[in-house]
Amino acid sequence: MIHTRNLPFVTTLGIFVIAYALCVLQFPNMLSMRVIGNLLTDNAFLGIAAVGMTFVILSGGIDLSIGSVIAFTSVFVAVLVGSLGVHPLIAFAAVLVISTLFGSLMGAMIRYLGIPPFVVTLAGMFLARGAAYLISTESVPISHEMIDTIQGFYFRFPGGGRLTMLAMLMLLVFVVGAFVAARTRFGANVYAIGGSEQSAELMGVPVGSTTVGIYALSGFLSGLAGIAYTLYTSSGYSLATVGVELDAIAAVVIGGTLLTGGVGLVAGTFIGILIQGLIQTYIVFDGTLSSWWTKIVIGILLFVFIVLQRGIIWYSNRRLAESRLKEI
């Protein structure tokens, strides 16, 4: 039996399977490991960032800085490696530390100054974007032996197609993220805060450190997504990834996580990413459709899911009322 709280996830999964089946009916070639491999690689950076966003939204917050942090990271890495000749591993470590600190700073402001997450991360968005421009307004290409090795590394799927390093990184982030959410006290505290911050506090949840941890995690994963994006494009550009945070939010919500917090699954976000990738792939296969159809379909899906979530809340309330009446 499906619990009501997993219904959005199951619905998303159902929609994905049906949509994929319909696509395959029209374009049989879409059912190949090559398509799936490309889909995973193309959306790797978005998927990594969306895992961080999942935690933020589960706690009832929002992080608008993600796209800017990705751009900042990619420019920063490109300049360090491409122009200054720093070893990529050192550059990676440096940006991960910076983005994590940036995230924890935003988390601390949200918690200890009582400023709404929307406002704090909006400021963070401008700040990170501005910092990226400050480093370079040009697209900075990078090439390094190690980066070439990483880009060239892949497993071959049985039926053709490649599981690249980037795709593996994203899958790893999803698996670890799902574990953290479901099987650690930190994860339980995130759900608790998303349910009701006040109740969580009265129940002894360390709300302060958890909030800082959530935004630090989101910052860290944005930095990691930035590294993935740099590897994906072999360059860093401060104008890139504008609005990626909104794509991430869309993936999270389509994946069945309640925007009000407290309910959702990391695995749902993965399906949300797959659905977005599927639409893009379909448009490529069709060849005549404008890429804006991606946005239109995602918009429609978002509406459907928000209505669905309201419907589920209404339904479970009504069922509860009915079961109470029966008891009497």
């Binding site: 709280r5 339980a188 759900y191 608790a192 998303g194 349910g195 009701s196 006040q198 109740s199 969580a200 009265l202 129940m203 407290g262 309910v263």
Partner: peptide, 12 residues
């Protein structure tokens, strides 16, 4: 303000 309705009984 009591327990968390979005969690299971055991989690609470």
């Amino acid at each position: 303000v009591n327990l968390l309705e979005n969690l299971t009984v055991a989690e609470n």
